[in-house]
Nucleic acid binder design. Structure first.
Lengths: 219, 219, 219, 219
DNA sequence: GATGAATGAGGATTCATTCAT
DNA sequence: TATGAATGAATCCTCATTCAT
């Protein structure tokens, strides 16, 4: 958007600027709505969140919400997708190859810290992944979940190439589960206590994974 | 209120019998309703469960339901409490003092196996504990949760008497969290795969707890 | 319902009477709702009729309406079906075999008069058959339409056995169409003018059909 | 209001041209919108047609639509009027005096064929005339209807000068009604079957009108 | 106690219409 | 003029809860 040459001619300038501004307004609204939705989902959960409440929180009328989203589910899906994408971008580096050569504790730090930070800043992300049973979302969120699962499996595979796929999946699921439940605890506390839970999570994973990966790694 | 003699007949024998029968019938109704609720909660989750659906599943009219429970939440609370009690009864033995002297793997088996079995048979128990975010229930279910927490803390305390209460609570929370998320995986699979997840849960807890309790225990 | 022996024993009497009364109330409500719907459909057409308006007209709350009908369409379908049934009952005699031997003018009188009377008394019947384009109703009403069509075709067949099925269908469709549009005119007028339109309808049909059926009939 | 000189440039030539262009553009827009409306009305009926859908079909924004029409009804009215005018132009010749001297079958051909053709090509015309019950439109479309009615009455009057006005109106209404319902059947079929229904319509009208007009005409 | 009808506030969604740009 | 965002009343429908019998 910045850097676009504007005002080339008065005519094209007019034709070009107005729509862009309108579009910009629309996108601002979308963000407003999404963050309002994030707040409401966090506070009340997806099922209990009403579209009217979301619109009210965003400071718009219900009709406006429906100009940008076809239904409540779409809001959750878009929000989840956007958060997922941001999560992926943010942690792409966490899973960088160079991290795989580092000792497990460092690897855990590298991977978990940004992920925890992200979730602390975007608690809606987690609230959405809990939406079990909501028809239509489960599907989309399965996708989010399997994305994470695949990443973790990928890391595990490099450490234990001899493990069967089933084992890998199982271990990855356990890791995700542990992470998930710990995140609940982490989010439920603050300050030093939160930090203590973060440390505890790392201890759990370290002790769980050390025996699994050390053999491969010790050579 | 129930059992109040209303002087229907002059015979004292009936005075006693009729109310008792009524009470018995009432308790049968309550069980009916509670197990219907368990089924519905399991299938649809608490929020999406309608009182009408529960009444229908129990084979009674909505009015009857409200004769025994003041509102939907009360059903969940009662159900949770009752399941919790059954869980307690069933596992009272698991936490028997003699188990505390056994090596950790056996202790884990002794404690986890019946608990897992119970949850496999009563999936509603778990469904209820997930009701995070439901206003009003969280509080009541905190109580269920803290019951479990206290038990686990109690066991831990005997193993690490020198640990601070905060540490104990933290560890107990982690254990419960790990158990909780593993249970999701366990319930989501069947047969050999389910058994594999059970084994994996024990590995995680064993490795997590071994360093914590071994020193104390090894002497 | 009448003639049922009641009050055999006090116990079974109680068990039997209360539900029947309740059921009776429900059926009264259904009739109320259906006639309210008939009125609203007549005045505003199906599409523009709101369920709240129907409930209001019936003097009940919207929720009550939905206790007896799953949705707006079901009301229309039930109403249509019920009217159709009444129409069938009422005109079963019109199509009696003995009428087929009478000269065409009398046949037309025998068939049309009760049908017209019925539609004047139940204008909703007609309003519903106009519901073109309403998804789901079209199907049900097609059935009503084809019922009529079959009857008319049946009569025609006895008069012109040599006609092809396609011709019969075409003629029956024309007759129904003429009847339909004339009914609009009949319902739109009153008193003598209405009678004049009725007469005119018979003239149209008489002249249309005379050449078709006379050959068969003249022997 | 349009065409008002706003004095943009001093040159008188432009003063004249620019408004004309604007006007031309406006009329193009109006046609766009009207034919879009015709399509939508045809597909979904008037009541179910949304102004947004019309605007979308026309490739403009809803705001633009409201720059040319004050509300949805006005679109229907204008469309109906325009179609009516085209119908009038197209069939002005059908009702030419010289046709009145021809035998009835030829007269029917002369009048009906172009009218049927017109309606097959402009199905929206018919869709609009069915909009019975739509508040506010009925009145405006009555006008369209009465236009046709007057024409038919005019023709009839030349054939039966001795008939009372009431009789004429009645007969004209019947004719229109028959035509209307037959048109439904005609539009609902294609090819040979459609032709057969056209023929059938003519038979109905021929037999209905022959006795009415022959006496006058046969001398 | 039991029944099932009754309630009505609330939720998702639509759409004719208006407004700022 | 044109745009498309904004509005908000209205619609269908649900469901926890109450009431008459």
């Amino acid at each position: 958007m910045p850097g676009t040459p504007k005002g080339k001619t008065t005519e094209s300038g007019e034709k070009d600027t107005a729509p862009r501004r309108r579009q910009a307004r629309g996108e601002r609204r979308i963000s407003q709505l999404l963050s309002a939705a994030a707040g409401v989902f966090c506070r009340t959960g997806y099922a209990a969140a009403s579209t009217n409440a979301i619109a009210r929180e965003a400071g718009v009328s219900p009709g406006t919400l429906y100009q940008f989203f076809p239904n409540k589910e779409a809001i959750a899906v878009e929000l989840g997708g956007q958060l997922m994408q941001r999560a992926n971008e943010m942690h792409g580096q966490a899973f960088l190859p160079e991290n795989l050569d580092r000792p497990l504790p460092e690897l855990l730090d590298a991977v978990l810290d940004p992920f925890i930070a992200f979730n602390c800043e975007n608690p809606a992300f987690w609230a959405l992944m809990h939406g079990t049973g909501i028809p239509g979302i489960a599907q989309e969120h399965e996708e989010l979940h399997s994305g994470l699962l695949a990443r973790v499996e990928g890391v595990l595979r490099t450490f234990c190439p001899e493990a069967s796929p089933a084992e890998l999946t199982r271990t990855a699921n356990m890791i995700l589960g542990i992470f998930k439940s710990s995140l609940d605890l982490i989010l439920a506390h603050e300050g030093a206590e939160r930090a203590a839970y973060v440390a505890e999570l790392k201890i759990v994973l370290l002790r769980y994974l050390e025996p699994v990966i050390t053999p491969t790694h010790s050579r």
